[in-house]
């Protein structure tokens, strides 16, 4: 079972060396130097920083509490409610600001979780090969072919508990396979290197070889996988929330869209209520995608803008 996605294992070793080198020269972490040099990535980093800043300082920046429904319902943008109000009379701008928290939290948590699952499964399968690989690859392939959205909907709809952490769990459990496949193919190219043989002869254990010899040579790949997982998670949360399967007690861009839809924003001409969360999504997704350009440059020196 060696079907693989159209992904070429890249020479990630060189990238890590370049990163370590750059770090020694400048005291700033090396990966950051390379990322910052890439123009696209620089824009992405600045955009992401803005989102993080807004999310962290939401209570300070938001003009009102997100659930404060003391305003006139369903009005367009005006002087006191810059982006108008919802059908329940809440301030759209405040919801937007607080929603950044949810999206980033889901992205970070679900991204981390699916990366960890992907790492564990991919590295074990790729390093041990043989029967273990057959079995794990079966599960990877299974997870890849199962239609993710219906599965997420089913899990979210029938789960006995509700809440944000359920959403994070559902997204992670459905989104780890792609990363696992990537890491598996990379470790297969790395495990036959002479220095791995040398580590075996030096008496190192398998776990140590994977963590200390192989992993440092594929960190850029792990980062790319993490960013991809974050993107998927943020999109996944929005999708679930829009379908009404999100956590109704938290304010997220997805629930905003859901309420805008059910609250008839289209009919009352409240364009800002509809567009604002969409633009925020697009902005965050763009930021992460732009950063990924830089991470690509990190793992492939030919893409660097030197």
């Amino acid at each position: 079972m060696t079907t693989s996605l159209p992904i070429q294992p890249v020479d990630t070793e060189q990238a890590e060396v370049a990163a370590v080198e750059a770090a020694r020269a400048t005291k700033v972490p090396g990966w950051f130097v390379i990322l910052w040099r890439n123009r696209k990535c620089r824009i992405g980093l600045v955009m992401l920083a803005v989102f993080v800043f807004v999310a962290l300082l939401a209570p300070v920046l938001a003009p009102y509490a997100p659930r404060d429904n003391s305003f006139t319902a369903s009005v367009g943008p005006n002087g006191s409610n810059w982006l108008g109000t919802t059908a329940q009379g809440e301030d759209v701008l405040s919801q937007l600001v607080y929603g950044a928290r949810t999206s980033l939290l889901v992205g970070l948590a679900a991204g981390t979780l699916s990366t960890v699952i992907g790492l564990a499964v991919g590295l074990t399968a790729g390093y041990l090969r043989g029967l273990v690989d057959e079995v794990l690859s079966f599960f990877i392939n299974l997870a890849l072919v199962v239609p993710v959205l219906p599965l997420m909907i089913t899990l979210a709809a029938y789960a006995p508990v509700k809440g944000l952490w359920l959403i994070i769990f559902v997204i992670s459990i459905t989104g780890w396979a792609y990363g696992a496949r990537l890491k598996r193919s990379q470790i297969i190219t790395l495990r036959t290197r002479d220095y791995i043989t040398a580590a075996k002869f030096a008496g190192d254990s398998t776990a140590r070889i994977i963590v200390r010899e192989i992993l440092p040579n594929m960190t850029s790949l792990v980062v790319v996988g993490f960013m991809g997982a974050c993107l998927g998670a943020i999109g996944g949360e929005a999708g679930l929330a829009f379908l009404g399967l999100g956590d109704p007690t938290t304010t997220s861009w997805g629930t905003m869209l859901n309420q805008a839809n059910t609250g008839g924003a289209m009919l009352t001409g409240q364009w800002a209520w509809l567009i604002a969360p969409g633009v925020a999504f697009a902005g965050l997704m763009t930021a992460l995608t732009l950063i990924n350009f830089g991470v690509d440059a990190l793992s492939n020196p030919h893409l660097r803008e030197d």
């Binding site: 070793e13 060189q14 890590e16 060396v17 370590v20 290197r193 002479d194 220095y195 043989t197 040398a198 580590a199 075996k200 002869f201 008496g203 200390r212 010899e213 440092p216 040579n217």
Partner: peptide, 22 residues
């Protein structure tokens, strides 16, 4: 593993035999 203590390897390609990050 115990036997390998007594049998060590010198590789052909010095550029592949050392971990580039170590």
């Amino acid at each position: 593993r115990a036997y390998r203590r007594h049998t060590q390897l010198v590789f052909q390609d010095p550029f592949a035999a050392l971990n580039p990050t170590r």
